[in-house]
């Protein structure tokens, strides 16, 4: 993107303005995520950079792990008004529990469906595809309202089962989309070769197809996991205090007690998303290499 030598001064100025503008947008995208990290290490009970944090040399009293200790349920200073308890840890356990189970179900169902959808003989493909990805398209608030009414009828509201079913429905579209996309590059001759050599369909899938599309399946599973792990609207209506998850607790935290513990959890979630992003990117490249697609 270097400027060619014949660029006129006016164009040059425009170009620098354009790069500067892009820089501002990148800053706009990242700044909020970066800003919360130092504040989570503040010792003050407010959501802001204190004088002590800004001074140089750093004031050790302004920085602390105190809110992280709160988050994991170690409450040594009793004089503070911020409620401290095991809520965050219970939320974490529940979030991982719901996330893991719904990911397992969603990935299994989604992968099998994607295999069917990529067959050339699939009847009513367009219609079925739109039904399958509709949970991703309908706004969450509508989904939540519909599910709340219906699940209340069959006594699934305020149960883990209800939430897991809802989360599976919400996250399967991601699995279907990613796995179908991976299967586009899959050479069906591989399946034929395996079968002509005498492998039964199950064996063909586990020994030949699955290893080749595994990167797609794992990406889909990660998408499914983050969907469930992040989901707050459904949980807000369909979960009781028993099914407290991280997003529900964060929501309650922001509405009621604005405490820096929220920022600690937020920092942990940013770290988690960095981890997931890296994994998905690596898998994407690996899958492209496997399928012989050159890096564009």
């Amino acid at each position: 993107m270097a400027l060619p030598s014949y660029t006129k001064p006016g164009e040059r100025i425009f170009y620098y303005f354009y790069v500067f503008f892009c820089g501002v947008v990148f800053f706009f995208l990242m700044a909020p995520l970066v800003a919360i990290i130092p504040i989570s290490f503040s010792s003050s009970p407010f959501f802001l950079f204190t004088e002590g944090m800004m001074s140089w040399p750093p004031d050790p009293d302004a920085w602390s792990f105190r809110w992280y200790r709160y988050m994991v349920g170690i409450c040594e200073d009793k004089n503070l008004t911020t409620p401290c308890g095991d809520k965050w840890m219970r939320g974490t356990v529940n979030s991982f529990y719901v996330g893991t189970i719904s990911t397992l179900i969603a990935t299994t169902l989604g992968t099998i469906a994607a295999l069917g959808l990529s067959k050339p003989h699939m009847p009513f493909k367009g219609l079925i595809m739109s039904i399958l990805i509709s949970p991703m398209i309908v706004p969450l608030i509508i989904t939540a309202a519909g599910m709340f009414f219906f699940y209340a009828k069959v006594n699934l509201v305020y149960t883990f089962t209800g939430i897991i079913l809802a989360h599976v429905a919400l996250s399967t579209p991601f699995v279907v989309i990613t796995v179908t996309a991976t299967l586009v590059g899959y050479d069906t001759n591989m399946t034929r070769a395996a079968q002509s050599l005498g492998a039964r369909p199950m064996k063909t899938f586990f020994k030949v197809t699955m290893p080749l599309i595994l990167p797609g399946i794992i990406s889909g599973a990660l998408f499914a996991f983050i969907t469930s792990f992040d989901e707050v609207v459904i949980v807000m209506f369909m979960a009781s205090i028993e099914q407290l998850t991280i997003p529900k607790q964060m929501w309650a935290g922001i509405r009621q007690e604005i405490s820096p513990v929220i920022l600690c959890m937020a920092t942990c979630l940013v770290v988690l998303s960095i981890f997931l992003l890296t994994t998905v990117e690596m898998l994407r490249r690996r899958s492209e290499n496997l399928r012989g697609i050159a890096h564009r």
């Binding site: 995208l29 992040d230 964060m250 929501w251 992003l277």
Partner: peptide, 20 residues
């Protein structure tokens, strides 16, 4: 810079904007 916000929890980003 584009994908990280995309992958980060909606609540985290909303909280971050309150902080900002």
């Amino acid at each position: 810079f584009v994908l990280l916000p995309f992958w980060t929890s909606l609540l985290v980003r909303t909280t971050a904007w309150i902080v900002m």
